[in-house]
């Protein structure tokens, strides 16, 4: 089983949209995929029509004996399951802090999911916290959405510093998110980004079908598979798959 966290310190940059659409693409591709909605706001769960709230959500992560796998729910899609968000996740930081060796515990919890899943995608809240620190120290790769703007570039730099400070060589996979090619700056900065060999080469366009996921409550490819944005997510997934050697 491989694990991929979608994370950056900024909100509203397309993390959740990417997590949901990539998880759907991976499942379609024949991987038993689990989407773990770690953001207490539960946007990823909402997009898949899964109501948030699970009895014992936090304990299932911090306590040794409670099985995380018991909280996994089916979604409307083949091979795709979800660990929905819970509002109590907002206290996850404190709970992890009170846990002995939180990283080790978290890693053991992820391991417990391995016999039934090929891939776990974690949709993380946009914060620098013990939660994100723990996740980053555990997963195989961190996917980072970057909107082509000068500010985002600085953010990416900070994120990379933060990840390298964690001292574990999780792959860093930045990609261009919400790209609007009509904007000159997007074009220029986008090109500059792609010169960086770490960047994934597939960019996700800014598209109304992605915005409308709030209404359709489904991955783009499930409702409008031939839309450019749907194709872009599939292509991005394939590139990630190759980079992560899945």
């Amino acid at each position: 089983m491989k694990s991929l966290a979608v994370w950056t310190i900024k909100g509203g940059v397309g993390k959740t949209s990417a997590a949901v659409n990539l998880a759907h693409a991976a499942a379609t591709d024949g991987l038993r995929t689990l989407l773990w909605d770690l953001d207490p706001q539960g946007a990823a769960s909402f997009y898949l029509r899964i109501p948030p709230g699970m009895e014992g959500a936090v304990e299932s992560i911090t306590r040794k004996r409670t099985a995380l796998a018991d909280l996994v729910l089916p979604t409307e899609f083949d091979n795709l399951t979800i660990l929905p968000a819970d509002f109590a996740y907002r206290h996850l930081d404190l709970a992890l802090d009170a846990t002995k060796k939180p990283r080790k515990r978290f890693a053991a919890k992820l391991d417990g999911l391995a016999d039934r899943h090929d891939l776990v995608i974690l949709d993380c809240p946009p914060s620098v916290s013990l939660v994100s620190e723990t996740v980053i120290k555990t997963v195989d790769a961190v996917l980072i959405p970057v909107i082509p703007s000068t500010l985002s570039m600085r953010t990416l730099h900070q994120v990379r510093v933060f990840i390298s400070e964690q001292g574990r060589g999780a792959d860093v996979l930045p990609f261009l998110s919400m790209v609007d090619l009509r904007k000159k700056m997007h074009n220029e900065l986008g090109l500059a980004c792609l010169a960086d060999p770490a960047f994934l080469t597939v960019a996700i366009p800014s598209a109304s079908v992605v915005e409308k996921m709030g209404i359709t409550r489904a991955p783009v490819a499930a409702t409008l598979p031939s839309q450019p944005a749907a194709r872009a997510f599939t292509a991005l997934w394939r590139e990630i798959r190759e980079r992560m050697e899945i």
């Binding site: 379609t28 591709d29 024949g30 991987l31 038993r32 089916p74 083949d78 091979n79 399951t81 090929d118």
Partner: peptide
């Protein structure tokens, strides 16, 4: 005891080598 597993295929697999890589 598990959900069924689904994977696309281009043709009917005959031998184990024909199976799409992965869980199946």
């Amino acid at each position: 005891g598990r959900d069924s597993f689904v994977v696309s295929t281009g043709s009917t697999p005959r031998t184990a080598d024909d199976l799409p890589q992965g869980h199946l």
